[in-house]
């Protein structure tokens, strides 16, 4: 609880939290804010015709329409849900996988530790976006496959972190005391070691919520992520690519196709990064006392 209070007192952290609440509200209220055109397929962006030239904001389409007459406002509102789904599922599962692998490596040590850590090294050798791009291409287009690819390439950071923390905490006096008191391995890990080693993982998870959304959107931008017409911020920005130059004499003619989706994705990542940054400053004992 004190952590939460400190987070609220930190101005940048507070801004981040407020923005996150804003995005949660938009995600929850999506069906009210933008009623779906098809009951069973709320993530399909409604189209108003098939012309490729974007149309400026109007009462019907508050943010205008993108290339192919996709409604930008609808895409942004439902894209918020997509962003939440992707980031929560990917960060949750990769953190879980990483925690299990890292704890096993740290606790059993020896050959098992060496093997698991070398496997981690090998997975680390592939750039995140490039690896995810190759994997999604092979698995096939679609949001589920994007999430699978991001988990496969995203667990290693958590494994390394938790392993390092456990190795340090294992030698701490209170753990030795619990061991001497007769606690078994499982109790030691779950009750004494993990609760103390978990904080850096929480910070890491917070910081990667934003980058997961960025990578997923980048895949859609490149045309290997979400299917065509799916409510996804990256997809909306990819529709903007051909229209950033505007018209002769009026360079700002199509500003809305670039600006609205860019603001949505940047604010979402910014809010997570602000919260993560503030959390790390609060939880990092080395920086305590300097303020």
């Amino acid at each position: 609880m004190t952590t939460f209070l400190k987070l609220i007192k930190n101005p940048l952290g507070l801004i981040g939290l407020v923005l996150l609440v804003f995005f949660i509200v938009i995600g929850i209220l999506a069906p009210v804010l933008a009623p779906p055109a098809w009951e069973n397929e709320p993530y399909r962006i409604p189209r108003d015709g098939y012309s490729s030239v974007p149309k400026p904001p109007s009462p019907e389409h508050p943010f205008g329409t993108a290339e192919g007459q996709y409604d930008i406002y609808y895409g942004i509102v439902w894209g918020t849900r997509t962003a939440w789904t992707v980031s929560l599922i990917v960060v949750g599962i990769s953190a879980l996988v990483g925690i299990v692998i890292g704890s096993v490596a740290a606790f059993y040590g020896g050959v098992l530790d060496e093997v698991l850590m070398r496997i981690t090294d090998i997975f680390y050798a592939f750039p995140f976006l490039v690896g995810a791009m190759v994997l999604t291409t092979i698995l096939g287009r679609g949001l589920t496959n994007v999430m699978v690819a991001l988990v496969v390439l995203g667990w290693m950071g958590y494994a390394r972190l938790i392993r390092g923390d456990i190795l340090q905490i294992r030698e701490a006096d209170y753990v030795q005391a619990a061991r001497a008191a007769g606690a078994n391995s499982l109790r030691l890990i779950l009750r004494h070691i993990l609760p103390n080693a978990i904080w850096p993982v929480v910070v890491q998870g917070t910081m990667s919520m934003g980058s997961i959304v960025i990578t997923a959107a980048a895949l859609s931008f490149l045309g290997v992520g979400a299917p065509l017409g799916y409510a996804d911020w990256g997809q909306l920005i990819s529709y903007a690519r051909n229209w950033i130059l505007g018209l002769y004499g009026n360079p700002l003619a199509y500003w809305y196709v670039v600006i609205y989706p860019s603001i949505a994705i940047t604010l979402f990542c910014l809010s997570w990064n602000l919260v993560g940054d503030a959390l790390r400053d609060i939880l990092d004992p080395r920086l305590r006392g300097s303020r």
Binding site: I214, G234, I237, T266, C269, L270, L274
Partner: peptide, 10 residues
């Protein structure tokens, strides 16, 4: 932090 939050394509 804004650079970190801004996707490369944006």
């Amino acid at each position: 932090i804004t650079g970190w939050s801004l996707p490369t394509f944006v």
